[in-house]
Write a protein that binds this DNA or RNA. Structure first.
Lengths: 357, 357
DNA sequence: TTGAAAGCGCTAACAA
DNA sequence: TTGTTAGCGCTTTCAA
């Protein structure tokens, strides 16, 4: 059933439309306030910036003038002039805000930003170099206070360049090796090892991994954790059972399908991120296989609705919100004190057992 | 099981740290390029802006100078100066990016923005007036080209004020009555009616609705659609079965629980948004009720993983990505031609039947 | 085709 | 305590 009400004719003309054409956005300036209040722009500026070198009565009349004009200081002009000070603007570049993991990070960042009266320019890169480069240039051109992003192999050089210019950068979720820059990661090796350990303890030996791209540091780390668990248990890895996807639901589904159609199929699957786990789940369902009896499944990244999936999905939970908060706080700390030593933080993941393994 | 590796001591000092303290972000300016190339800043500016009044040879040497300096024009200075032109910056204020519905809208907006070389300041308001107001001020102070947001009852006045200043605004998902401003909505009445109709056709008469807050236009519209379906079918609404939540998973769970614990419980539940549907799902599961045999469930808003829920959730799907795209395109059109008539668009929702009803 | 100079809205140094 | 002024990086007349 499809209901169609989209109505291209439902377009009305109005008086308001005419207004737009004449009114360039009206913004009173310092000058306007100065004129109205009878003081100089310097004094008005002092009032705005809460200088204590203004008489109470002066402050009062200036503030009255500001209010009556609806004056709002231009962040643009301020940013242009004030070279040393804070611009109260952060740049954040994430692969895709539609991934709940990224949304959580973004939210963590923004909550800290808001608490400190910072606004955030948020961009989606899809891990595409072209977009990353464009947005990195935007950040410089907007002269934001600093940038938070998860680098990948391809973008690393561009990120390094930005760091060279002196722009504070905080890496989240992914790292660049051998570079001294503030970084907030999750311990992916330990997380992946914990997931695999659990599968092994359950008696599985034919365990498949749907891994992420090698160009992403956390993906390599998760692979390492997987291998570590096997080595620890003195178990051999069947290379046929390790597949590399691209962190999308689609490859998760396809690779799980391939795995499931193997002559001797795995009894357990570890999916290296949330989307691929969801894809694997769909593929298993499609084959009417029981979870965990026929195939056990565990994913990396929690989902707010993992509890309500069929079956409730066991996962390695990343503290994504905290990652975002920590990164933002690190950046703000760096801004207020550039001499701070570099921090490389690694937050802990958590094994959450539900019903899928 | 909890693995803890957070290591506050894993903090290293380095040469890079020292660098920060001295290097104020280095940004070559027009002046630097002018000096290096031997031309005036005016000429350099012309080269940047692709003026045709420059000799090929001049352009060439200026471009060489720009490249060798890694020059990037400051969007800030440009914005300050150029009163008429485009700033290539959009403001977007959404309630919460962690809601996949909002994430989809945001993505739709950004894809159009990126295609036109615009960057986006994205903010979460939590539908809190204080945050909305702060971010609205930020948009003005940053002199963005325009703002996209879903208004609510409380913020409407502030939004109107912004519109008064001449700043282009596009409303998404929610409308303000009696105001001529570009708006992209979804037909909530028809959507909610379709959901309720379907439940009625299935033979249900005790149908509960978990509605959203009355302060949000789409919530009121969905209630209207629900009532319309009842009236159409000549069925009475049991007021006890209509509960008002706040669009969060938590109230969805609580209100569903109340409903389910009623002496004569409803046989079907219509949840007015995605989060409340998820909450209701959890509440039903907790009581070990079968879906749809004991209680049928339908939600508003699709979820990328609705298929994999237990059971796969039937929903009214909103074309959220298209809503975002359309809004952004509307805004860009308005920027390039302010005389354009006001558009009030209403996109179509879609009934997607899966297994929950 | 190029350059000189004014000025966008603001901060900050200096003077009064 | 207040005002004058220079200048942030750029665009845009106006002259040359």
């Amino acid at each position: 059933m499809r209901i169609t009400t989209r109505d291209p004719n439902n377009v009305k003309t109005s008086l308001t439309a005419a207004k737009y054409s004449h009114s360039l956005t009206f913004m009173p300036s310092l000058n306007d306030v100065a004129e109205l209040s009878g003081y100089s722009i310097a004094t008005v500026s002092r009032v705005i910036n809460g200088s204590d070198k203004v008489t109470a009565s002066t402050r009062e009349s200036v503030e009255k003038a500001m209010k009556s004009l609806g004056y709002l200081p231009s962040r643009v002009a301020r940013r242009l002039r004030q070279k040393g000070g804070l611009r109260h603007l952060l740049g954040v570049i994430l692969p895709n805000i539609q991934n709940p993991f990224n949304a959580e990070i973004a939210r963590g960042i923004e909550d800290i930003a808001y608490a400190n009266r910072f606004a955030v320019i948020l961009c989606n890169s899809d891990d595409k170099y072209e977009k990353e480069k464009f947005y990195l240039d935007v950040m410089r051109a907007e002269s934001v206070d600093g940038v938070i992003l998860p680098p990948n192999q391809e973008s690393a050089a561009a990120v390094l360049e930005v760091i060279e210019t002196g722009m504070p950068v905080v890496l989240v979720d992914r790292a660049i090796r051998g570079v001294q820059v503030d970084t907030v990661e999750v311990d992916n090796v330990i997380g992946a090892k914990a997931a695999t350990d659990h599968l092994i303890q359950l008696g599985h030996t034919r365990i498949a991994m749907i891994a992420g791209p090698d160009s992403i540091s956390n993906s390599r780390q998760r692979k390492r954790g997987f291998e570590k668990a096997f080595k620890n248990a003195n178990l051999p890895i069947d290379p046929e059972l390790v597949r590399t996807g691209d962190y999308t639901q689609d490859t998760g589904r396809k690779l799980a399908a391939d795995l499931l159609d193997l002559p001797s199929r795995p009894t357990a699957i570890f999916a290296s991120n949330n989307f691929m786990a969801l894809g694997a789940l769909a593929a298993i369902h499609k084959r009417n296989l029981r979870i965990p009896e026929d195939v056990a499944l565990i994913g990396f990244d929690d989902l707010p609705w993992a509890e309500t999936l069929d079956p409730p999905l066991s996962v390695i939970r990343q503290p994504a919100y905290e990652v975002g908060q920590t990164a933002a706080q690190l950046l703000l700390d760096r801004l207020s004190n550039p001499e701070l030593p570099i921090s490389k933080l690694r937050l802990s993941p958590e094994l959450i057992l539900r019903k899928s393994c």
